[in-house]
């Protein structure tokens, strides 16, 4: 079956792409000036030699590369330089789900919010609700994420003060209440973008002939709205969700930093500051591979769901 052959070909391409990402990461990492084995207390040459041997840094570069790629092929990212007895695999396993949770929630909020607000603004075109929502949309698109995140946190403190009960936690992770504001902040930009998209798409659909026909035929308004207008207007929104996922997963950096969320993004930023080679390389390759295969999955799903999409 062609779908299977297509999937197989994409998968092979994906593997080659991941190899490319891994190589690029390796080269970029080894071009970084500095030394991951430095600590604020200087060490003797003997201790240094031992440390280098432990992390394989005493090998020539091409040997290091071969070891790195063969370890990678076995799914082994090595041991962290800062957390000296923790494997990078453990770090990813423990922190990626947090980022993923936040990302999924943000995407869902953005997608649903975008559709609802977009439909609403189209309905009230050029009237007060439209103007008000579009103003907020413009704000959400043009204010930098870290400012929104900081304001979000201040808003929680204010809310808790005014009500006198701890409604929402200021930072941290673990329960439902911890997720709400960070996910909202993270999804806000995408939601604003989708709202605009939904609005114009909705306006376009409402003006089409088939809607006019449906009304002329006397189909109930409710049915026209859900079966004809909404369903067709949502299509372009769905097509941009794919790229938005990639944006939101990495956009989580800021939110994770501000709200002290133990996600992989925050970990990455800390690893960069500590020059933790293995964690930086592991995280980058993992994220790259994740995105590559997400794109393949999304493409395949489109092919299955929408017969008009031709599998190249």
């Amino acid at each position: 079956m062609t779908l299977w052959r297509y999937a197989l070909r994409r998968l092979l391409q994906g593997i080659v792409t991941v190899w490319f990402i891994a190589t690029a990461t390796f080269l970029a990492m080894h071009a970084v000036p500095g030394d991951p084995l430095m600590s604020d207390k200087a060490v003797t040459p003997e201790i240094r030699a031992n440390l280098e041997a432990k992390y394989g840094l005493d090998q020539p570069l091409h040997r290091q590369y071969l070891i790195y790629i063969s370890n990678l092929a076995r799914g082994d990212f090595g041991i962290s330089f800062t957390q000296k007895n923790r494997e990078v695999n453990d770090i990813i396993r423990e922190h990626f789900p947090v980022s993923a949770t936040l990302g999924i929630l943000a995407i869902v909020i953005a997608g649903m919010g975008g559709v609802v607000w977009g439909a609403l603004t189209a309905l009230y075109r050029n009237r007060l609700p439209d103007t008000a929502i579009m103003f907020l949309v413009i704000l959400a698109i043009s204010v930098p994420g870290f400012v929104i995140a900081a304001l979000g946190q201040l808003a929680i403190v204010g809310l808790n003060r005014v009500t006198g009960i701890p409604l929402l936690p200021v930072a941290g992770w673990g329960s439902v209440s911890h997720m709400l504001i960070p996910a909202l902040v993270l999804g806000l930009g995408t939601m604003a973008y989708l709202t605009r998209l939904m609005r114009s798409s909705m306006l376009e659909v409402i003006a089409t002939d088939y809607i006019r026909t449906a009304r002329a035929k006397g189909i109930p308004a409710t049915r026209i709205f859900t079966h004809h207008a909404l369903r067709n207007a949502v299509l372009p929104v769905i097509t941009v969700l794919g790229p938005a996922i990639a944006g939101i997963t990495t956009g989580g950096f800021v939110v994770e930093l501000v709200f002290a969320i133990p996600g992989l993004g925050r970990y990455f930023v800390q690893a960069v500051q500590q020059l933790d080679y293995t964690v930086i390389m592991g995280t980058t390759v993992f994220y790259g591979a994740f995105l590559v295969f997400m794109v393949i999955v999304v493409d395949l799903l489109y092919g299955i769901v929408d017969p008009r999409v031709r599998l190249e």
């Binding site: 949770t101 936690p169 992770w173 329960s175 911890h178």
Partner: peptide, 20 residues
């Protein structure tokens, strides 16, 4: 979805309630 995710997260041991 939030409850579902929180439940999934809790089963892996990240859960923490808001305490004074």
């Amino acid at each position: 979805l939030m409850y579902l995710l929180a439940w999934a997260a809790d089963s892996t041991g990240t859960g923490s309630a808001v305490k004074p």
